[in-house]
């Protein structure tokens, strides 16, 4: 794994990290719950064949405290759109996971002409009381790794402070990512995304970890039924909610083939 190019763009006065790596047609990726405190193998796999651009969401690692000025869902959608524009992702293929998948879906729904192909890994944003998503903010600390990934060690490795990290600021940054997600989705995870899904015109791949314990797989069918364009669902064997962390090669291959 080699390091990506790291740029920053201004979003509402916050210097927001944008990673860039690889060559070929642009493919954007928006990270899931907890964000990306470090570069991960999944992104390298994408970068083998594409120019991967990874903007941080406000409040997520790399996103400073940008979430603190976003008070409504409209604020969030406009901030993410700004991020898309400044990262060069308007008109590109777009992928996202979990929180990021929900925002990618919003981009494709509100600006349907500006997303070429869409790949969503277990997006948040819907709530059906007959099969409710898990509450990621009402968990004992020890339960979170196994909730997010099929292999809890994968999550722990993502969140472990690297050598030389500030031992005070690092854990605060990880809590901040959870707070930013809460700011969007508290308390139910229902952002009424279902109302906007029919506007999505981009062909859409729905990816679900076989053992997703956050978003039940039944949401793939709910989302599929509402999508305006062509769509397909694939299950990634052995993966949890953040399938791109548990099974980076399989998740990347699925996205690369869908957007090729």
């Amino acid at each position: 794994m080699s390091a990506p190019e790291e740029l920053t763009v201004d979003v509402n006065g916050f210097q927001t990290r944008v990673w860039r790596k690889g060559s070929g047609p642009v493919l954007g990726f928006i990270a899931g719950y907890g964000g990306l405190p470090r570069w991960v193998p999944f992104l390298d796999h994408l970068a083998e064949r594409r120019t991967v651009i990874v903007p941080s969401l406000p409040g997520f690692p790399g996103g400073e405290r940008g979430h603190t000025v976003l008070d409504s869902h409209l604020d969030w959608i406009v901030a993410v759109r700004t991020l898309m524009e400044k990262s060069g992702l308007v008109g590109a293929d777009l992928a996202g996971s979990s929180v990021g998948a929900s925002m990618a879906a919003e981009m494709a729904a509100v600006w349907p002409a500006d997303v070429r192909r869409l790949a969503l890994i277990a997006p948040l944003g819907l709530y059906d009381e007959t099969d409710p998503p898990a509450d990621p903010w009402a968990q004992r600390a020890d339960d979170v790794p196994g909730l997010m990934c099929a292999d809890p060690e994968v999550w722990k490795a993502l969140k472990a402070p690297p050598e030389g990290a500030n031992s005070i600021e690092w854990p605060i940054e990880q809590v901040r990512a959870n707070e930013a997600a809460a700011r969007i989705f508290w308390p139910m995870g229902n952002t009424q995304l279902a109302k906007r899904l029919p506007r999505i015109a981009a062909p859409t791949l729905l990816l679900w970890g076989e053992h997703d314990r956050v978003m039940p797989r039944s949401y793939a069918a709910r989302i599929g039924a509402l999508l305006g364009g062509r769509h397909e669902t694939r299950v990634i064997g052995g993966a949890g909610h953040l399938a791109e962390l548990d099974r980076p090669r399989e998740a990347a291959d699925a996205i690369l083939s869908w957007t090729s």
């Binding site: 903010w137 901040r176 997600a181």
Partner: peptide, 25 residues
């Protein structure tokens, strides 16, 4: 009280988190 209700993220300000980690250290 179930500890799962203990720490909604954002409830404790970053300043207080920082002071808490420092006092633990």
């Amino acid at each position: 009280v179930d500890p799962k209700w203990a720490t909604p993220p954002g409830y404790t300000s970053e300043g207080s988190q920082r002071a808490g980690i420092e006092s633990q250290v």
